[in-house]
Design a binder for these strands. Sequence first.
RNA 1: CGGGAGGUAGUUCAGCUCGGUAGAAUACAUGGUUUGGGACCAUGGGGUCGCAGGUUCGAAUCCUGUCCUCCCGACCA
Length: 424
Amino acid sequence: MYRKVYLKLKKKNAEGFAKECAVVTHYRLKTDIQNPGKLIVDPEAKLEEELVVRPTSEAIIWNTYKTWIQSYRDLPILINQWANVVRWEMRTRLFLRTAEFLWQEGHTAHASKEEAIQETKTMLDVYADFAENYMAMPVIKGVKSENERFAGAVDTYCIEALMQDGKALQAGTSHFLGQNFAKAFDVKFNNKDNQAEYVWATSWGVSTRLIGALVMAHSDDEGLVLPPKLAPFQAIIIPIYKGEASKNIIDEKAQSLLEELKSKGIRAKYDSDDNSRPGWKFAEYEMKGVPVRIALGLRDIENNVAEVARRDTKEKTSVQLDGLPVYIENLLNEIQHSIYQKALDYRNEHITEVNTWDEFVETLETKTGFVSAHWDGTPETEEKIKEMTKATIRCIPLNNRSEAGQCILSGKPSTERVLFAKAY
RNA sequence: CGGGAGGUAGUUCAGCUCGGUAGAAUACAUGGUUUGGGACCAUGGGGUCGCAGGUUCGAAUCCUGUCCUCCCGACCA
Protein backbone atom coordinates (compact mmCIF):
# COMPACT_ATOMS: atom_id res chain seq x y z
CA MET A 1 0.00 0.00 0.00
CA TYR A 2 1.40 3.37 -0.82
CA ARG A 3 0.78 7.01 -1.54
CA LYS A 4 -0.98 7.66 -4.77
CA VAL A 5 1.81 9.99 -5.92
CA TYR A 6 4.17 6.99 -6.16
CA LEU A 7 2.03 5.55 -8.90
CA LYS A 8 3.45 7.47 -11.78
CA LEU A 9 3.50 5.68 -15.05
CA LYS A 10 3.31 6.23 -18.73
CA LYS A 11 -0.28 6.99 -19.58
CA LYS A 12 -0.77 3.72 -21.39
CA ASN A 13 0.47 1.67 -18.43
CA ALA A 14 -1.33 3.79 -15.86
CA GLU A 15 -4.63 2.93 -17.48
CA GLY A 16 -3.80 -0.73 -17.13
CA PHE A 17 -3.19 -0.38 -13.43
CA ALA A 18 -6.02 2.00 -12.60
CA LYS A 19 -8.81 -0.54 -12.67
CA GLU A 20 -6.96 -2.92 -10.36
CA CYS A 21 -6.38 -0.46 -7.55
CA ALA A 22 -8.36 -0.46 -4.33
CA VAL A 23 -8.19 2.83 -2.46
CA VAL A 24 -7.90 3.33 1.28
CA THR A 25 -9.81 6.42 2.32
CA HIS A 26 -10.06 6.17 6.12
CA TYR A 27 -7.64 5.23 8.84
CA ARG A 28 -9.84 3.85 11.60
CA LEU A 29 -13.16 2.35 12.60
CA LYS A 30 -15.26 3.11 15.63
CA THR A 31 -18.10 1.44 17.48
CA ASP A 32 -21.54 2.27 16.25
CA ILE A 33 -23.51 4.13 18.92
CA GLN A 34 -26.77 2.91 17.46
CA ASN A 35 -25.55 -0.66 17.37
CA PRO A 36 -23.03 -1.45 20.14
CA GLY A 37 -20.65 -4.23 19.25
CA LYS A 38 -20.68 -3.24 15.58
CA LEU A 39 -17.93 -1.30 13.92
CA ILE A 40 -18.40 1.45 11.37
CA VAL A 41 -16.03 3.64 9.42
CA ASP A 42 -15.22 6.70 11.50
CA PRO A 43 -16.20 9.68 9.35
CA GLU A 44 -13.77 11.82 11.36
CA ALA A 45 -10.91 9.66 10.16
CA LYS A 46 -10.84 10.54 6.50
CA LEU A 47 -7.33 10.52 5.03
CA GLU A 48 -6.10 13.75 3.53
CA GLU A 49 -4.16 11.76 0.98
CA GLU A 50 -5.68 8.48 -0.02
CA LEU A 51 -3.55 5.34 -0.15
CA VAL A 52 -3.51 2.85 -2.98
CA VAL A 53 -3.48 -0.93 -2.65
CA ARG A 54 -1.45 -2.25 -5.52
CA PRO A 55 -0.65 -5.81 -6.47
CA THR A 56 3.03 -5.25 -7.20
CA SER A 57 5.91 -3.45 -5.61
CA GLU A 58 7.49 -1.87 -8.69
CA ALA A 59 6.68 1.58 -7.39
CA ILE A 60 8.61 1.05 -4.16
CA ILE A 61 11.48 -0.72 -5.88
CA TRP A 62 11.94 1.93 -8.52
CA ASN A 63 11.79 4.79 -6.06
CA THR A 64 14.67 3.01 -4.35
CA TYR A 65 16.60 2.08 -7.50
CA LYS A 66 16.50 5.74 -8.46
CA THR A 67 18.71 6.49 -5.47
CA TRP A 68 21.06 3.56 -6.11
CA ILE A 69 21.79 3.87 -9.80
CA GLN A 70 24.08 6.48 -11.32
CA SER A 71 26.60 4.58 -13.41
CA TYR A 72 26.77 1.47 -15.56
CA ARG A 73 29.08 0.28 -12.79
CA ASP A 74 26.01 0.08 -10.52
CA LEU A 75 24.38 -2.38 -12.87
CA PRO A 76 23.06 -4.98 -12.97
CA ILE A 77 21.08 -5.06 -9.73
CA LEU A 78 18.93 -7.91 -8.52
CA ILE A 79 16.65 -7.70 -5.51
CA ASN A 80 14.75 -10.78 -4.45
CA GLN A 81 12.13 -10.74 -1.75
CA TRP A 82 9.56 -12.93 -0.13
CA ALA A 83 6.58 -10.85 0.85
CA ASN A 84 2.97 -11.12 1.83
CA VAL A 85 0.87 -9.32 -0.71
CA VAL A 86 -2.59 -7.85 -0.27
CA ARG A 87 -4.83 -7.45 -3.26
CA TRP A 88 -8.31 -6.32 -3.89
CA GLU A 89 -10.20 -9.41 -5.07
CA MET A 90 -13.86 -9.56 -5.90
CA ARG A 91 -14.04 -13.26 -5.23
CA THR A 92 -11.34 -15.39 -3.73
CA ARG A 93 -10.43 -18.98 -4.39
CA LEU A 94 -8.40 -21.06 -2.00
CA PHE A 95 -4.69 -20.99 -2.90
CA LEU A 96 -5.37 -19.72 -6.42
CA ARG A 97 -6.66 -16.25 -5.75
CA THR A 98 -6.65 -15.07 -2.18
CA ALA A 99 -6.83 -11.53 -0.85
CA GLU A 100 -3.54 -12.05 0.94
CA PHE A 101 -0.79 -14.41 -0.08
CA LEU A 102 2.90 -15.11 0.14
CA TRP A 103 5.01 -14.70 -2.94
CA GLN A 104 8.53 -14.52 -4.12
CA GLU A 105 9.35 -11.67 -6.44
CA GLY A 106 12.48 -10.32 -8.00
CA HIS A 107 13.36 -7.02 -9.61
CA THR A 108 16.38 -6.42 -11.76
CA ALA A 109 17.94 -3.39 -13.45
CA HIS A 110 20.26 -3.63 -16.44
CA ALA A 111 22.38 -1.48 -18.70
CA SER A 112 21.23 -3.18 -21.89
CA LYS A 113 18.02 -4.40 -23.41
CA GLU A 114 19.60 -7.73 -24.37
CA GLU A 115 20.77 -8.43 -20.85
CA ALA A 116 17.33 -7.66 -19.44
CA ILE A 117 15.60 -9.93 -21.94
CA GLN A 118 18.12 -12.66 -21.12
CA GLU A 119 17.35 -12.27 -17.41
CA THR A 120 13.62 -12.51 -18.09
CA LYS A 121 14.10 -15.77 -19.96
CA THR A 122 16.54 -17.18 -17.41
CA MET A 123 14.01 -16.70 -14.64
CA LEU A 124 11.28 -18.24 -16.74
CA ASP A 125 13.53 -21.27 -17.10
CA VAL A 126 14.13 -21.35 -13.34
CA TYR A 127 10.39 -21.44 -12.74
CA ALA A 128 9.78 -24.03 -15.45
CA ASP A 129 12.55 -26.20 -14.02
CA PHE A 130 11.02 -26.04 -10.57
CA ALA A 131 7.53 -26.80 -11.85
CA GLU A 132 8.62 -29.75 -13.97
CA ASN A 133 11.49 -31.28 -12.05
CA TYR A 134 10.31 -30.70 -8.50
CA MET A 135 6.54 -30.30 -8.66
CA ALA A 136 6.37 -32.87 -11.48
CA MET A 137 4.01 -30.51 -13.26
CA PRO A 138 4.58 -29.98 -16.97
CA VAL A 139 4.31 -26.38 -18.12
CA ILE A 140 4.23 -24.54 -21.41
CA LYS A 141 6.56 -21.59 -21.67
CA GLY A 142 5.14 -18.73 -23.63
CA VAL A 143 4.44 -15.04 -24.07
CA LYS A 144 1.20 -13.35 -23.06
CA SER A 145 -1.01 -11.53 -25.49
CA GLU A 146 -1.50 -7.81 -24.98
CA ASN A 147 -4.72 -8.36 -23.04
CA GLU A 148 -3.14 -10.75 -20.59
CA ARG A 149 0.12 -8.91 -20.23
CA PHE A 150 1.19 -7.30 -16.96
CA ALA A 151 0.22 -3.65 -17.22
CA GLY A 152 3.75 -2.31 -16.81
CA ALA A 153 5.52 -4.79 -19.05
CA VAL A 154 6.71 -4.78 -22.62
CA ASP A 155 6.49 -8.57 -22.67
CA THR A 156 5.10 -10.96 -20.10
CA TYR A 157 6.51 -14.47 -20.24
CA CYS A 158 4.69 -17.19 -18.40
CA ILE A 159 4.53 -20.86 -17.59
CA GLU A 160 1.08 -22.32 -18.12
CA ALA A 161 -0.03 -25.59 -16.54
CA LEU A 162 -3.10 -27.70 -17.15
CA MET A 163 -5.12 -28.97 -14.21
CA GLN A 164 -6.88 -32.34 -14.18
CA ASP A 165 -10.24 -30.70 -14.76
CA GLY A 166 -9.06 -29.31 -18.07
CA LYS A 167 -8.64 -25.73 -16.91
CA ALA A 168 -5.38 -23.88 -17.36
CA LEU A 169 -3.46 -22.23 -14.57
CA GLN A 170 -0.79 -19.58 -14.84
CA ALA A 171 1.93 -20.90 -12.58
CA GLY A 172 4.51 -18.16 -12.79
CA THR A 173 5.41 -15.01 -14.71
CA SER A 174 8.56 -13.22 -15.75
CA HIS A 175 8.31 -9.73 -17.20
CA PHE A 176 10.55 -7.81 -19.53
CA LEU A 177 9.72 -4.29 -18.40
CA GLY A 178 11.73 -2.44 -21.03
CA GLN A 179 12.37 1.11 -19.91
CA ASN A 180 8.80 1.69 -18.75
CA PHE A 181 9.52 2.01 -15.06
CA ALA A 182 12.86 3.76 -15.61
CA LYS A 183 11.05 6.43 -17.58
CA ALA A 184 8.18 6.67 -15.12
CA PHE A 185 10.55 7.07 -12.18
CA ASP A 186 13.29 8.81 -14.12
CA VAL A 187 16.03 6.30 -13.45
CA LYS A 188 19.05 6.90 -15.69
CA PHE A 189 22.63 5.73 -15.65
CA ASN A 190 25.75 7.05 -17.34
CA ASN A 191 27.22 4.62 -19.85
CA LYS A 192 30.90 4.22 -20.66
CA ASP A 193 30.68 7.18 -23.01
CA ASN A 194 29.26 9.33 -20.21
CA GLN A 195 25.88 9.43 -21.86
CA ALA A 196 22.69 9.20 -19.76
CA GLU A 197 20.44 6.27 -20.63
CA TYR A 198 17.29 4.85 -19.11
CA VAL A 199 17.73 1.60 -17.22
CA TRP A 200 16.30 -1.66 -18.56
CA ALA A 201 14.30 -3.80 -16.16
CA THR A 202 12.71 -7.13 -15.37
CA SER A 203 10.51 -8.50 -12.63
CA TRP A 204 9.27 -12.00 -11.92
CA GLY A 205 7.38 -13.95 -9.33
CA VAL A 206 5.69 -17.09 -8.15
CA SER A 207 3.35 -17.46 -5.22
CA THR A 208 1.55 -19.85 -2.90
CA ARG A 209 -0.70 -20.34 -5.91
CA LEU A 210 1.82 -23.07 -6.77
CA ILE A 211 0.47 -25.04 -3.83
CA GLY A 212 -2.95 -24.97 -5.43
CA ALA A 213 -1.37 -26.03 -8.70
CA LEU A 214 0.38 -28.94 -7.01
CA VAL A 215 -2.85 -30.11 -5.42
CA MET A 216 -4.85 -29.92 -8.61
CA ALA A 217 -2.20 -31.39 -10.84
CA HIS A 218 -1.78 -34.73 -9.10
CA SER A 219 -4.42 -35.44 -6.48
CA ASP A 220 -7.08 -38.15 -6.74
CA ASP A 221 -10.22 -39.11 -4.81
CA GLU A 222 -8.14 -40.48 -1.94
CA GLY A 223 -6.43 -37.15 -1.40
CA LEU A 224 -3.11 -35.52 -2.12
CA VAL A 225 -0.43 -37.05 -4.29
CA LEU A 226 2.88 -35.36 -3.55
CA PRO A 227 5.95 -35.58 -5.74
CA PRO A 228 8.74 -37.31 -3.75
CA LYS A 229 11.14 -34.41 -4.16
CA LEU A 230 8.78 -32.06 -2.32
CA ALA A 231 7.06 -34.44 0.10
CA PRO A 232 7.88 -33.55 3.72
CA PHE A 233 7.81 -37.29 4.41
CA GLN A 234 8.71 -39.54 1.51
CA ALA A 235 8.08 -42.84 3.26
CA ILE A 236 5.93 -43.83 6.20
CA ILE A 237 6.44 -47.04 8.13
CA ILE A 238 3.33 -48.52 9.70
CA PRO A 239 3.49 -51.38 12.19
CA ILE A 240 0.89 -54.13 12.15
CA TYR A 241 0.71 -55.98 15.43
CA LYS A 242 -1.42 -57.86 17.91
CA GLY A 243 -0.62 -57.15 21.50
CA GLU A 244 2.31 -55.64 23.33
CA ALA A 245 4.79 -58.45 22.70
CA SER A 246 4.54 -58.43 18.92
CA LYS A 247 4.62 -54.64 18.90
CA ASN A 248 7.96 -54.65 20.67
CA ILE A 249 9.44 -56.96 18.07
CA ILE A 250 8.11 -54.85 15.22
CA ASP A 251 9.16 -51.59 16.88
CA GLU A 252 12.72 -52.78 17.00
CA LYS A 253 12.79 -53.86 13.35
CA ALA A 254 11.03 -50.71 12.22
CA GLN A 255 13.45 -48.47 14.10
CA SER A 256 16.46 -50.02 12.46
CA LEU A 257 14.76 -49.79 9.08
CA LEU A 258 13.99 -46.14 9.76
CA GLU A 259 17.64 -45.45 10.49
CA GLU A 260 18.71 -47.21 7.30
CA LEU A 261 16.30 -45.13 5.25
CA LYS A 262 17.44 -41.90 6.88
CA SER A 263 21.07 -42.74 6.29
CA LYS A 264 20.24 -42.94 2.58
CA GLY A 265 18.83 -39.41 2.80
CA ILE A 266 15.22 -40.55 2.60
CA ARG A 267 12.78 -38.50 4.65
CA ALA A 268 11.05 -41.29 6.53
CA LYS A 269 8.86 -41.59 9.59
CA TYR A 270 7.74 -44.47 11.76
CA ASP A 271 4.20 -44.15 13.06
CA SER A 272 4.09 -46.32 16.16
CA ASP A 273 1.06 -44.54 17.59
CA ASP A 274 -1.07 -47.08 19.41
CA ASN A 275 -4.21 -44.99 19.30
CA SER A 276 -5.16 -45.57 15.71
CA ARG A 277 -5.32 -48.82 13.83
CA PRO A 278 -3.40 -49.72 10.66
CA GLY A 279 -6.33 -49.17 8.32
CA TRP A 280 -6.83 -45.72 9.71
CA LYS A 281 -3.17 -44.87 9.21
CA PHE A 282 -3.22 -46.18 5.64
CA ALA A 283 -6.06 -43.85 4.77
CA GLU A 284 -4.56 -40.96 6.69
CA TYR A 285 -1.19 -41.01 4.92
CA GLU A 286 -2.80 -41.53 1.56
CA MET A 287 -4.84 -38.42 2.15
CA LYS A 288 -1.69 -36.54 3.05
CA GLY A 289 0.01 -37.73 -0.11
CA VAL A 290 3.01 -39.55 1.36
CA PRO A 291 4.59 -41.19 -1.72
CA VAL A 292 5.52 -44.55 -0.19
CA ARG A 293 4.04 -46.63 2.61
CA ILE A 294 5.89 -49.48 4.22
CA ALA A 295 3.75 -51.88 6.27
CA LEU A 296 5.59 -54.15 8.66
CA GLY A 297 3.97 -57.03 10.54
CA LEU A 298 5.07 -60.19 12.32
CA ARG A 299 4.32 -62.26 9.25
CA ASP A 300 6.58 -59.97 7.20
CA ILE A 301 9.42 -60.15 9.66
CA GLU A 302 9.26 -63.96 9.65
CA ASN A 303 9.67 -63.83 5.87
CA ASN A 304 12.20 -60.99 6.02
CA VAL A 305 10.03 -58.74 3.85
CA ALA A 306 7.86 -55.62 4.08
CA GLU A 307 4.79 -54.59 2.13
CA VAL A 308 5.58 -51.51 0.04
CA ALA A 309 2.71 -49.48 -1.41
CA ARG A 310 3.13 -46.51 -3.73
CA ARG A 311 0.70 -43.65 -3.39
CA ASP A 312 0.38 -42.71 -7.05
CA THR A 313 -0.73 -46.08 -8.45
CA LYS A 314 -1.77 -47.78 -5.18
CA GLU A 315 0.32 -50.80 -6.19
CA LYS A 316 1.49 -53.03 -3.35
CA THR A 317 4.60 -55.19 -3.50
CA SER A 318 6.33 -57.49 -1.05
CA VAL A 319 9.98 -56.46 -0.87
CA GLN A 320 12.97 -58.15 0.81
CA LEU A 321 14.08 -56.20 3.88
CA ASP A 322 17.75 -56.51 3.00
CA GLY A 323 17.66 -54.28 -0.05
CA LEU A 324 14.75 -52.18 1.05
CA PRO A 325 16.41 -48.74 1.36
CA VAL A 326 17.81 -48.99 -2.14
CA TYR A 327 14.46 -50.21 -3.41
CA ILE A 328 12.71 -47.25 -1.78
CA GLU A 329 15.25 -44.82 -3.16
CA ASN A 330 14.66 -46.09 -6.67
CA LEU A 331 10.92 -46.20 -6.16
CA LEU A 332 10.86 -42.55 -5.13
CA ASN A 333 12.61 -41.60 -8.35
CA GLU A 334 10.24 -43.79 -10.29
CA ILE A 335 7.23 -42.09 -8.69
CA GLN A 336 8.65 -38.65 -9.37
CA HIS A 337 8.98 -39.49 -13.06
CA SER A 338 5.75 -41.41 -13.23
CA ILE A 339 3.48 -38.65 -11.94
CA TYR A 340 5.22 -36.16 -14.21
CA GLN A 341 4.69 -38.46 -17.16
CA LYS A 342 1.06 -38.98 -16.26
CA ALA A 343 0.48 -35.25 -16.08
CA LEU A 344 2.41 -34.74 -19.30
CA ASP A 345 0.39 -37.36 -21.15
CA TYR A 346 -2.82 -35.78 -19.95
CA ARG A 347 -1.60 -32.34 -20.95
CA ASN A 348 -0.48 -33.46 -24.41
CA GLU A 349 -3.76 -35.24 -25.04
CA HIS A 350 -5.48 -32.00 -24.17
CA ILE A 351 -3.82 -29.74 -26.68
CA THR A 352 -6.21 -29.75 -29.58
CA GLU A 353 -5.60 -28.08 -32.91
CA VAL A 354 -8.75 -26.66 -34.44
CA ASN A 355 -9.38 -24.69 -37.60
CA THR A 356 -12.99 -23.60 -37.42
CA TRP A 357 -15.09 -21.68 -34.96
CA ASP A 358 -17.47 -24.60 -34.44
CA GLU A 359 -14.61 -26.97 -33.64
CA PHE A 360 -13.19 -24.37 -31.30
CA VAL A 361 -16.38 -23.99 -29.28
CA GLU A 362 -17.05 -27.72 -29.31
CA THR A 363 -13.57 -28.55 -28.05
CA LEU A 364 -13.75 -26.00 -25.25
CA GLU A 365 -17.12 -27.34 -24.14
CA THR A 366 -16.59 -31.08 -24.34
CA LYS A 367 -12.91 -31.97 -24.39
CA THR A 368 -11.60 -28.90 -22.49
CA GLY A 369 -7.86 -28.23 -22.11
CA PHE A 370 -5.73 -26.11 -24.42
CA VAL A 371 -7.05 -25.31 -27.86
CA SER A 372 -4.45 -24.42 -30.45
CA ALA A 373 -5.92 -22.06 -33.02
CA HIS A 374 -5.15 -19.22 -35.36
CA TRP A 375 -5.84 -15.71 -34.14
CA ASP A 376 -5.61 -12.44 -36.00
CA GLY A 377 -3.45 -10.86 -33.32
CA THR A 378 -5.86 -8.14 -32.24
CA PRO A 379 -7.02 -7.50 -28.66
CA GLU A 380 -10.53 -6.92 -30.01
CA THR A 381 -10.81 -10.44 -31.37
CA GLU A 382 -9.40 -11.95 -28.19
CA GLU A 383 -11.93 -9.95 -26.20
CA LYS A 384 -14.82 -11.14 -28.36
CA ILE A 385 -13.72 -14.74 -28.04
CA LYS A 386 -13.54 -14.34 -24.28
CA GLU A 387 -17.04 -12.88 -24.14
CA MET A 388 -18.46 -15.67 -26.24
CA THR A 389 -16.64 -18.67 -24.76
CA LYS A 390 -14.95 -17.55 -21.50
CA ALA A 391 -11.70 -18.78 -23.00
CA THR A 392 -8.63 -16.56 -23.10
CA ILE A 393 -5.28 -16.78 -24.80
CA ARG A 394 -3.08 -18.49 -22.25
CA CYS A 395 0.09 -17.89 -24.19
CA ILE A 396 1.89 -17.84 -27.48
CA PRO A 397 4.33 -20.71 -26.96
CA LEU A 398 8.04 -19.96 -27.23
CA ASN A 399 9.63 -21.49 -30.32
CA ASN A 400 6.17 -21.60 -31.85
CA ARG A 401 6.31 -22.78 -35.43
CA SER A 402 5.14 -20.50 -38.21
CA GLU A 403 2.08 -21.64 -40.06
CA ALA A 404 -0.17 -19.71 -42.38
CA GLY A 405 -3.83 -19.84 -41.40
CA GLN A 406 -6.96 -17.88 -40.77
CA CYS A 407 -8.27 -16.50 -37.51
CA ILE A 408 -11.01 -18.78 -36.20
CA LEU A 409 -13.26 -15.83 -35.44
CA SER A 410 -12.45 -13.05 -37.90
CA GLY A 411 -11.07 -15.16 -40.74
CA LYS A 412 -8.21 -12.71 -41.15
CA PRO A 413 -4.78 -14.09 -41.99
CA SER A 414 -2.56 -15.41 -39.19
CA THR A 415 1.00 -16.66 -39.12
CA GLU A 416 0.95 -18.88 -36.06
CA ARG A 417 -1.31 -20.74 -33.65
CA VAL A 418 -1.85 -19.60 -30.06
CA LEU A 419 -3.12 -21.53 -27.07
CA PHE A 420 -6.60 -20.78 -25.80
CA ALA A 421 -8.17 -22.25 -22.66
CA LYS A 422 -10.59 -21.61 -19.89
CA ALA A 423 -8.40 -20.65 -16.98
CA TYR A 424 -8.44 -20.21 -13.24
C1' C B 1 -24.67 -3.90 -5.28
C1' G B 2 -27.99 -7.49 -8.16
C1' G B 3 -29.75 -13.18 -8.58
C1' G B 4 -30.03 -17.97 -5.74
C1' A B 5 -29.40 -21.10 -1.29
C1' G B 6 -28.79 -21.56 3.80
C1' G B 7 -28.04 -20.63 9.51
C1' U B 8 -30.57 -26.80 14.43
C1' A B 9 -24.88 -31.03 18.99
C1' G B 10 -17.57 -30.03 17.91
C1' U B 11 -18.69 -31.44 12.44
C1' U B 12 -22.11 -32.87 8.30
C1' C B 13 -27.17 -32.74 8.23
C1' A B 14 -32.63 -34.50 9.11
C1' G B 15 -36.98 -32.41 11.42
C1' C B 16 -40.40 -27.16 9.26
C1' U B 17 -45.28 -28.43 4.26
C1' C B 18 -49.38 -30.40 8.57
C1' G B 19 -47.07 -26.15 15.81
C1' G B 20 -47.07 -30.42 21.12
C1' U B 21 -41.07 -28.53 23.82
C1' A B 22 -35.19 -31.77 19.33
C1' G B 23 -32.90 -36.37 16.38
C1' A B 24 -29.21 -39.24 13.11
C1' A B 25 -24.36 -40.05 11.50
C1' U B 26 -19.73 -38.83 12.96
C1' A B 27 -16.66 -36.87 16.76
C1' C B 28 -15.82 -36.89 22.23
C1' A B 29 -15.51 -39.69 27.43
C1' U B 30 -15.42 -44.47 30.19
C1' G B 31 -15.17 -49.92 30.22
C1' G B 32 -14.45 -54.34 27.48
C1' U B 33 -13.26 -57.10 23.09
C1' U B 34 -9.99 -55.96 18.97
C1' U B 35 -5.65 -54.63 15.43
C1' G B 36 -2.85 -57.21 7.46
C1' G B 37 -7.51 -51.19 4.48
C1' G B 38 -10.71 -45.54 8.15
C1' A B 39 -12.99 -51.75 14.33
C1' C B 40 -17.22 -53.62 17.41
C1' C B 41 -20.43 -53.73 21.81
C1' A B 42 -22.21 -51.19 26.10
C1' U B 43 -22.80 -46.76 28.83
C1' G B 44 -22.35 -41.48 29.07
C1' G B 45 -21.63 -36.00 28.26
C1' G B 46 -22.96 -32.33 24.70
C1' G B 47 -27.81 -27.93 21.39
C1' U B 48 -30.84 -20.34 24.77
C1' C B 49 -32.76 -24.52 17.01
C1' G B 50 -28.42 -17.13 14.24
C1' C B 51 -30.84 -12.80 16.85
C1' A B 52 -35.27 -9.72 18.20
C1' G B 53 -40.29 -9.15 18.18
C1' G B 54 -45.31 -11.15 17.06
C1' U B 55 -49.48 -15.01 16.69
C1' U B 56 -50.78 -19.19 20.03
C1' C B 57 -52.49 -22.66 25.92
C1' G B 58 -47.94 -24.14 23.36
C1' A B 59 -43.08 -22.08 18.11
C1' A B 60 -36.99 -25.17 15.46
C1' U B 61 -41.81 -25.28 12.75
C1' C B 62 -46.36 -19.88 11.24
C1' C B 63 -45.72 -14.11 10.57
C1' U B 64 -42.51 -9.54 10.67
C1' G B 65 -37.87 -7.44 11.16
C1' U B 66 -32.68 -8.02 11.53
C1' C B 67 -27.66 -10.12 11.39
C1' C B 68 -24.42 -13.55 9.18
C1' U B 69 -22.48 -17.34 5.72
C1' C B 70 -22.04 -19.73 0.98
C1' C B 71 -22.81 -20.03 -4.47
C1' C B 72 -23.56 -17.25 -9.39
C1' G B 73 -22.66 -12.33 -12.03
C1' A B 74 -20.16 -6.83 -12.52
C1' C B 75 -13.41 -7.10 -17.68
C1' C B 76 -10.69 -10.66 -12.62
C1' A B 77 -6.08 -14.28 -12.69
